[in-house]
Simulated scan of single mutants.
Amino acid sequence: MGAAATYPFKEGGYTLYSCTTCPFARRAVRAFNAANVPYAVEEIDLTNKPEWYPQVNPRGLVPALRTPDGTILVESLVIAEFVAEQFPEAELLPRDPVARAQLRLFIDKYATEVTPNFYRLIKSADKGEQDALKAKLAEGFKAISAELDAQWQREAGRGGPFWAGDRWAYAEIALASFLEALPVLEHYRGFVVPSTDEFAAFHRWNKAVQEHPEAARAYPGRDTLIAAHKKFVPDA
């Protein structure tokens, strides 16, 4: 069978190389779950990776996906979008090009204005720097809340509480993993998203995401996430 036989995979099916505590890997898991597509999972211990894993992803990162024809895909959003486009009947992505572009911009805004400051705050041991990062995070969540308010006025998201209106879809697949990690910030840094009107749309969306069954299917649990992030916290 050649080189393909030197690492584990599901013959004729999809194999997802994942890690339960990795937010990027959970994106891929949630894409397959939401599309209702069968797949096999190979759990990768990122602190003790299997000797064969570089054959799957030479960079050693998760997630990675082996498709039925043996093609390997990497990067969480690439895999999630592949699933959404490969199984359009699941309607995870909007068909309208403008709506699809607005969705991508929303995900990018979270990735640039929230996620980096989340990790910077976790890793910071300086109180002054932490206070500055908390202010930046608050501004980032305010911007996300404003984007949700705008989306819920559009036909593609009319009324919410999800980006696609009343449907859990690609925005939630892409971002649920990061929303469920917010208690980690509260635990280690005492940061919570403010409860003022400027953040109301964010809180409505976050509540809907956390309570949806698709979130629960891949949620590793609060204590597990807190423990998994401890390695990033210099003063823990």
Rank of each mutant, 00 (worst) to 15 (best):
T112K: 15
E113A: 13
V114C: 15
V114R: 12
T115M: 15
T115Y: 09
P116T: 11
F118Q: 11
F118T: 11
R120A: 15
L121C: 09
L121D: 04
I122V: 13
I122N: 08
K123Q: 15
K123E: 12
S124P: 04
D126A: 12
D126M: 08
G128I: 03
E129Y: 01
E129D: 14
Q130D: 12
D131L: 15
A132W: 00
A132C: 05
A132L: 10
A132H: 02
A132V: 04
A135V: 09
L137M: 14
A138H: 01
A138G: 08
A138T: 15
E139M: 11
G140S: 10
G140L: 09
G140A: 11
F141S: 06
F141Y: 15
F141Q: 07
A143W: 03
I144W: 07
S145W: 06
S145G: 12
A146I: 01
E147T: 09
E147R: 13
L148H: 05
D149N: 14
D149I: 05
Q151T: 11
W152K: 03
W152V: 03
W152H: 10
R154D: 05
R154S: 10
E155K: 14
A156I: 00
P161R: 07
P161S: 04
P161L: 06
P161N: 06
F162C: 01
A164E: 05
G165S: 02
